[in-house]
Design a protein around this nucleic acid. Structure first.
Lengths: 344, 344
DNA sequence: TGCGGCCATGTAATCGATTACATCTCCTCC
DNA sequence: GGAGGAGATGTAATCGATTACATGGCCGCA
């Protein structure tokens, strides 16, 4: 082990040049003649030199680090997006800092801690549930560093975002069910404050209406994205007389809970009722019955969000505030089937 | 908006003191008289001052940041641990940097990038699958910054670690099944390179033997932690004549795949065979049948790992290389039942 | 009274890079 | 032949904190 960490000056001495030249080789090699460049690169190798990030950050006033605000780190839903983010950022030599936005009330304080302190050059927000006060803090941040929403977003907040085509996903489900003969549709929603949940619910109403299906308020049940919400909904669903033959749930978890609850109540899926989810989480495939759902490329959404942020960070400040909408795919499995004649 | 970010000097002027005093108030208030302290704190408030991390890091040669090496960020299994880490670190004003260790070959390079560059003061490794060359790089790192393993670990590598009591979990499952009357046990293992997998397999053999059960090599199937591995195992299991009546799987996913495969083959769980998982992931509860499995507090493991790292970072260099073993819990559900008389 | 010591505070060096500006060399072109 | 410009490199200022060392005031004690 070398006793002390080598510094630019050590590299410079070994290569017989000045520290400025070493720095140039590291940051913009084209400025330096080939011979010098090679000599410096060799010296870097020989000394095992690594730039001191803190020093560079101080001087350049950048951190080459991006902060991801995740609503709930322990929710597997987000890990895929994180993975996509990380890959893309690392490829550009950026690092990824993560924080749970439900943790400390995000608010100005949490954000300032990272942004004003210069710990992060940009922000990727996976959380659309931001209250008014926090939004104001965010507005202020927006003036300072680029921000991109991924997956979720806040309506009316002028800022680039990457999201799945939630509406199209619901359309696919409605069409799929329609073709199976279903005419009465029910919906179990996610949390009413959540933007994904609202979009899906709106799309549900829209496409059922377009198709000319029977749409009733009483068949649109509240919930949140949890299994528990599905179970609760199941109690209601099991008692409905002449109710929907097909239930579109705002998440796979809800669908799991709903199906589990229905099974307990003696209602069979898909024989008696069809049920669909949304997200295509890993378990949908082995669930019994395997769940018909909508797949979104969460990894790619992460990639894309990172790319958009990097794009802004690398200077071209033409910010596209138009949302980037990623395609979704219908995955038809066994939880949906032809409408039962007895129930038409 | 203030035109420029306030700096210590601005705070110092406003409070009528020197920058040194401001810094003292921020870092060790006890050194400063009460009157001055309050004046400075007020000035900090009034200016909206935030320390520049890069400058502080440069001077103190610390980053107040910890790097988590995650084998596969998109695996939900790790998100819980991350969450625990993050919470604990944030409470001590540390930040969490994450990187996917499967991403770039971790190796010296990836590590150096963070550690030698001073981007992280410590390392939390969630990945036990580290090859020999990488281990050497890691040894070198160990001399520089504290390292803690969480959940997984590398055997024979002298370094603190936090892990679940894998062996005890398997014992609980064996005992649970034994009491249900089972005497012939099978195991579907995880990847052979994985330390958790090996521990669980060893424990399986050990406790079946202790109980006096029938233990055969042919009943210990290879696999990895995936659903797919369970499905593959199912093909084999379905053909066994007079085979095990109870199957202990190294992960919940394997159990899902196994049960799904068995169901397809017309074998009923738990009527014909009992099956258990390991981990108690969220979906176990709604799976049909609900899965008997072992629960571990992944969140708390994250907390504990972070605490141990912080402990080292905060100076008390008494490193406990003894692993910290966290308790696990049996969650008995419907995938296990009394042994079928016809199969005893 | 005077000395030693403690406490609170200030002055200025320092961390390790990047980069504005200066310098020097070598060409080109009139 | 000389002005001017381009290209390569060096010198030294700079980023914004922390902290070693210096200073000054005050108290207690001989």
């Amino acid at each position: 082990m070398r006793s002390a960490k080598p510094k630019v000056i050590d590299v410079a001495r070994l290569a017989g040049v000045s520290t400025a030249t070493v720095s140039r080789v590291l940051n913009d090699p084209s400025m330096v003649s080939e011979a010098t460049r090679e000599a410096v690169q060799k010296a870097v190798q020989d000394t095992g030199y690594r730039v001191n990030r803190a020093a560079r950050n101080l001087r350049t006033n950048r951190s080459r680090t991006v902060l991801a605000l995740v609503p709930n780190l322990s929710n597997p839903f987000f890990s895929n997006i994180l993975s996509g983010l990380e890959r893309e950022l690392n490829a550009s030599d950026y690092s990824l800092l993560v924080t749970d936005s439900s943790d400390v009330t995000l608010s100005s304080d949490q954000l300032q801690r990272y942004i004003s302190a210069g710990q992060a050059d940009g922000l990727i927000i996976l959380d659309g549930d931001i209250d008014q006060r926090e939004l104001e803090a965010l507005q202020a941040v927006l003036a300072t560093v680029p921000v991109v929403f991924a997956c979720e977003w806040v309506e009316g907040f002028a800022c680039p975002s990457v999201r799945a085509d939630n509406s199209e996903g619901i359309r696919m489900l409605v069409d799929h069910l329609w073709e199976l003969g279903h005419r009465r549709f029910g919906h179990v929603a996610g949390p009413s404050t959540n933007v994904l949940s609202r979009k899906r619910q709106e799309a549900f109403a829209k496409f059922v209406r377009i198709r000319g299906g029977d749409l009733r308020q009483a068949w649109m049940l509240p919930g949140n994205f949890s299994i528990e919400a599905g179970k609760i909904a199941a109690k209601k669903v099991a008692t409905l007389q002449n109710g929907p033959t097909a239930w579109i749930c705002a998440s796979d978890q809800i669908a799991f809970g709903l199906i589990a609850g229905l099974t307990d109540a003696g209602v069979k899926v898909p024989d008696d009722l069809s049920v669909t989810g949304f997200d295509n989480i890993e378990m949908t495939e082995v669930f019994n019955p395997p769940l018909t759902t909508i797949h979104q490329h969460r990894n790619k959404m992460g990639n894309e969000a990172a790319r958009q942020l990097l794009h802004q960070l690398k200077g071209s400040h033409k910010v596209i505030n138009e949302p980037t909408v990623m395609p979704v795919y219908l995955v038809a499995r066994k939880s949906t089937g032809p409408v039962t004649q007895a129930r038409v």
